[in-house]
Simulated scan of single mutants.
Amino acid sequence: MIYGIGTDICDVRRIRASLERHGDRFAEKVLAEGELAAWRARSARWPERGVRYLATRFSAKEAFSKAIGMGMRMPMTWRSCEVAKLPSGQPVIVLHGALKTWFEERGLHCHLSVTDESDYAASFCVVERAAPALPATAPAQA
Rank of each mutant, 00 (worst) to 15 (best):
Ile2Pro: 11
Ile2Trp: 07
Tyr3Asn: 04
Ile5His: 03
Ile5Thr: 04
Ile5Cys: 04
Thr7Glu: 01
Ile9Cys: 01
Ile9Asp: 03
Asp11Ile: 13
Val12His: 00
Val12Gln: 06
Arg14Met: 05
Ala17Thr: 15
Ala17Asn: 09
Ser18Pro: 05
Leu19Pro: 01
Glu20Ala: 12
Arg21Gln: 05
Arg21Cys: 01
His22Met: 07
His22Cys: 14
Gly23Phe: 03
Gly23Gln: 08
Asp24Tyr: 02
Phe26His: 06
Lys29Gly: 05
Lys29Cys: 08
Glu33Phe: 14
Glu35Ile: 05
Glu35Gln: 07
Leu36Arg: 15
Leu36Val: 14
Ala37Ile: 12
Ala38Pro: 02
Trp39Val: 06
Trp39Asn: 00
Arg40Asp: 09
Ala41Ser: 14
Arg42Asn: 11
Ser43Trp: 14
Ala44Gly: 12
Trp46Pro: 00
Pro47Arg: 15
Pro47Lys: 13
Glu48Met: 08
Glu48Gln: 13
Arg49Trp: 08
Val51Cys: 02
Val51Arg: 02
Arg52Glu: 15
Arg52Ala: 02
Arg52Val: 06
Tyr53Pro: 00
Leu54Phe: 01
Leu54Gly: 05
Thr56Asp: 08
Thr56Asn: 10
Thr56Gln: 14
Arg57Met: 08
Phe58Arg: 00
Phe58Val: 07
Phe58Ser: 06
Ser59Gly: 03
Ala60Ser: 14
Glu62Leu: 14
Ala63Tyr: 12
Ala63Val: 10
Phe64Glu: 05
Ser65Pro: 11
Ser65Lys: 09
Lys66Met: 09
Ala67Thr: 06
Ile68Gln: 04
Ile68Tyr: 06
Met70Lys: 10
Met72Cys: 06
Pro75Met: 01
Pro75Glu: 01
Trp78Tyr: 03
Arg79Thr: 13
Val83Glu: 04
Leu86Pro: 00
Leu86His: 05
Pro87Met: 01
Pro87Trp: 05
Gly89Lys: 03
Gln90Ser: 04
Gln90Ala: 14
Pro91Tyr: 05
Pro91His: 02
Pro91Trp: 02
Val92His: 04
Ile93Pro: 10
Ile93Lys: 00
Ile93His: 07
Leu95Pro: 09
His96Arg: 07
His96Val: 04
Gly97Lys: 07
Lys100Glu: 15
Lys100Asp: 14
Lys100Cys: 11
Trp102His: 07
Trp102Gln: 10
Trp102Asp: 12
Phe103Trp: 08
Glu104Thr: 11
Glu105Tyr: 02
Arg106Trp: 05
Arg106Pro: 09
Arg106Ile: 01
Gly107Gln: 09
Leu108Glu: 13
Leu108Phe: 08
Leu108His: 10
Cys110Met: 03
Ser113Lys: 03
Val114Ala: 12
Thr115Asn: 14
Thr115Met: 02
Asp116His: 15
Ser118Cys: 03
Tyr120Val: 13
Tyr120Asn: 08
Ala121Pro: 01
Ser123Ile: 09
Phe124Trp: 08
Phe124Ala: 11
Phe124His: 10
Phe124Glu: 10
Phe124Ile: 06
Cys125Asn: 00
Val126Asn: 13
Glu128Leu: 15
Glu128Met: 08
Arg129Cys: 06
Arg129Thr: 04
Arg129Ala: 12
Arg129Glu: 15
Ala130His: 12
Ala130Gly: 14
Pro132Cys: 10
Ala133Tyr: 00
Leu134Ile: 08
Thr137Ser: 15
Thr137Cys: 12
Thr137Ile: 11
Ala138Ile: 07
Ala138Phe: 02
Ala138His: 12
Pro139Arg: 13
Gln141Thr: 13
Gln141Ile: 04
Ala142Trp: 00
Ala142Arg: 10
Ala142Leu: 10
Ala142Asp: 14
